[in-house]
Amino acid sequence: MWWDWLVPDASTDSAPEDPAGVPAITARGLTVRGPWGPVYGPVDLDVPAAGVTVMVCPAGSGRTALSMTLAGRMRPTSGSLSVFGRTRARDIFAVAALAGIDELDTVAESVTVGDLITEQLRWDAPWYRLIRRADDDDLRRVCGPVFGELPLPPRSEFVEELTELDGLLLRIALANTRRPALLVVGNLEQVTSDANREVLVDRLVDLGREQTVLTASVNGVAARPGLREIPVAGVSRAELAGHQEGGA
C-alpha cells in the first residue's frame, strides 16, 4: 500500500496550550509520493485552533492521504508539518483522533452498537483492567458528546441498520473517546442527504467549542459561527498532472 502505517504513541497527554492566534496546524510543501507517483502535494495549510475548518478540495485518494497525514497516521515524503507544536508523526498521532476514513475505521455491519462501544472501551483501558460489556451509561458517555440532543442509537442496533448520519456520528464518537486536541473527520459527503449533512456540521461545530475539528468537502457548506472554509490545492490527479507538466 502507498501509506506508511505508524505504531501509536503510548502517550495520551493533551496538546500544550497555544497563544491566541497561533495555528493548530501549519503545513508547508507537504507531499506524499507512492510507488506509482505523487499522491498529493505540495500542500500549504494553516488551520486555526478551535472551531471547525472545512478543507474544500476534490475527493479522492489524495484528500484521504492528506487527512491521514494531518492526523499523524501517515508520514509525509517531504515538506514540514506542525500540529500543536508537534512535528513527528508519532507525536501528532497522540493528540489527534481520526474518523470517517474507510481505510481505517470501517466497521463490520453485522455487529451491534453495544459491541463496538465495548470493544472501544477495552481498547482504551489498561491491559490489566477487566471491562464488562457496555451498558446504557457507557452508551451515553461515549456517544452523548457527539450526538448531543439527537437520539442515541440503541445498543442492540446493528450497524447496518443505522442511518448514514448515525453511522458516521458513531464512528466519530468511537474515535473521539479520549477527546484529543485535534479531531479529523474524513469528509462530509459521506452523508448524502443535504438536511442530515447540515445536522452533521452542526454537531461538529458543537465539538469545535472544545476541540479543533478538521474535515473536508467538495463544495463547501453553509456559513455559520464557529466554522471556516479554506481551499486546498494539490490533492487531485489533475492538479498533480498539471504540476508535473509545468516542470515543478
Rank of each mutant, 00 (worst) to 15 (best):
E189V: 10
G167E: 10
L182N: 11
L139P: 00
R179H: 14
E210R: 08
P225S: 05
N196Q: 15
I131V: 15
A134W: 14
A222F: 03
G208N: 04
E160K: 13
L207T: 02
A173D: 00
E164S: 14
D202R: 11
I172R: 00
E164R: 02
E157P: 01
A134M: 06
C143L: 11
V184P: 09
N187R: 14
R224V: 06
D138Y: 13
R224F: 00
L152W: 08
L207P: 07
L227N: 04
P225L: 05
T215R: 02
L188C: 08
V146T: 01
G167K: 05
S217F: 08
L152Y: 06
L162H: 02
A223H: 06
L188I: 10
R203P: 01
L214K: 01
R133K: 14
C143D: 09
P151C: 01
L183F: 00
D166Q: 12
V191Y: 06
L183D: 09
V185L: 02
L207Y: 08
Q190R: 14
G167Y: 12
A175C: 02
T177S: 03
R197E: 07
S217P: 00
R224H: 03
R197M: 12
C143T: 09
D166L: 06
L170D: 07
T192Q: 14
E164F: 10
E198T: 09
I131P: 00
L168K: 00
T163A: 08
S193W: 05
L139V: 06
A222L: 06
E161Y: 12
E164W: 08
G220I: 06
P151V: 09
V142L: 04
V199L: 13
R155G: 15
E157S: 15
G220D: 04
L174D: 12
E164Y: 11
T215S: 06
L165Y: 02
R209G: 11
N187M: 11
E157Q: 14
R132E: 15
A134H: 10
S217Y: 08
E161K: 10
T192I: 04
R155D: 14
N219K: 06
L183P: 15
D137E: 15
G220A: 07
L150P: 07
N219I: 03
D138C: 08
R203K: 00
D137Q: 13
L139W: 07
A216E: 14
R209I: 07
S193A: 13
P180N: 07
V159C: 13
G148L: 00
P145C: 05
R178E: 13
T163R: 12
